[in-house]
Design a protein around this nucleic acid. Structure first.
Lengths: 159, 159
DNA sequence: GGGAATATACTCGGATACACAGTGTCCGAGTTGTTCCGG
DNA sequence: CCGGAACAACTCGGACACTGTGTATCCGAGTATATTCCC
């Protein structure tokens, strides 16, 4: 199992984007984080389609939050980038082979699928409990309250 | 994020294998579940290398449990097939870009990485709480106590 | 008849091709700010 | 001096190649069994 690399970029970009009220172009976010601009644009596009970000074209356009960062959970961002389907997909192998069960015996998911689904639910619950605003607050706490201010200043400037 | 398909096969095979005291060849397990024999052998090999199963060569050889199914958790099997590394890998993008932090500021993982690691820990905890024996018991409960008996009978026979 | 060497058949183990999703990039459609011209 | 239209620059959006991991398969190395031969 391997999580797409764009998830990390999307989360960091959301945290940074929450510091600016004005729209920020994708190229500028890419330069801020030192990542490929074109590829980041692809992922920001996914966030826009998911309704997390709002895109505004034109010279002073860019991406901005469609909702308050306090209401966007990490799970929302992860699902927007990685897709909503769970990691484990049951192929119903209990219905195959010489001892395959009939459809009437497969009303509810098998025990294996249930165990995996429960773990997936725990994973999602943990991600749902953290918001983008929480991440920004934690990062500020790590840096004694200087990191987010620097980001605000850099985004406002023309560097 | 997509979990390898072999994880499902390995779990079902472990449940079935727990019903037989004698070693069972990979080809026989494959026929029982209706899956490609050669590919299943590759995954059983991983389980053997992880110390979960024990392989015995020769005419009456095959795979058998190295430990009691009551002591093997679902997490053990998943990690053996999918690899021990977590799904999210922090690439430390906070150290890149114009506002990149120096190494002295990166003693502990960043907030994003911490949130993802916490979710991963919750996922693993959920999988660690279920054993192969638990799965077998649940499957028996689903089928009114007939499924595991049929598997035992089929594995003992020559079908 | 008993024992040992041998041939055999069956098992796992790693090395080898193919396919799909993730990675990375590009150029075109659309919108806004600017500029120029006319009134 | 003011209003409107044309222009240009900048933005996102989807379509196009490349790479790495997962999928699927095969044949060779090794071992316990059954046979066979010899004592």
């Amino acid at each position: 199992m391997k999580l797409s690399n764009g998830v990390e970029w999307a989360l960091h970009c959301c945290v940074s984007l929450g510091q600016s009220h004005a729209p920020v172009p994708a190229a500028r976010l890419a330069k801020l984080h030192g990542i490929p601009p074109a590829y980041l644009a692809k992922h920001l596009q996914s966030l826009s389609q998911a309704g997390i970000l709002r895109s505004t074209p034109g010279p002073v356009g860019g991406y901005s939050f469609a909702q308050s960062p306090t209401q966007v959970s990490v799970l929302d961002v992860v699902l927007a980038i990685d897709g909503p389907e769970p990691a484990f997909r049951c192929t119903e192998i209990r219905r195959q082979g010489p001892l395959g069960l009939g459809p009437e015996k497969c009303r509810k998911p098998c025990a294996v699928s249930r165990a995996m689904a429960a773990a997936d639910a725990a994973w999602r619950a943990a991600l749902k409990g953290v918001t983008i605003a929480d991440l920004a607050r934690d990062i500020d706490a790590d840096s004694a309250g200087t990191a987010m201010g620097s980001v605000r200043q850099w985004l406002a400037g023309t560097g």
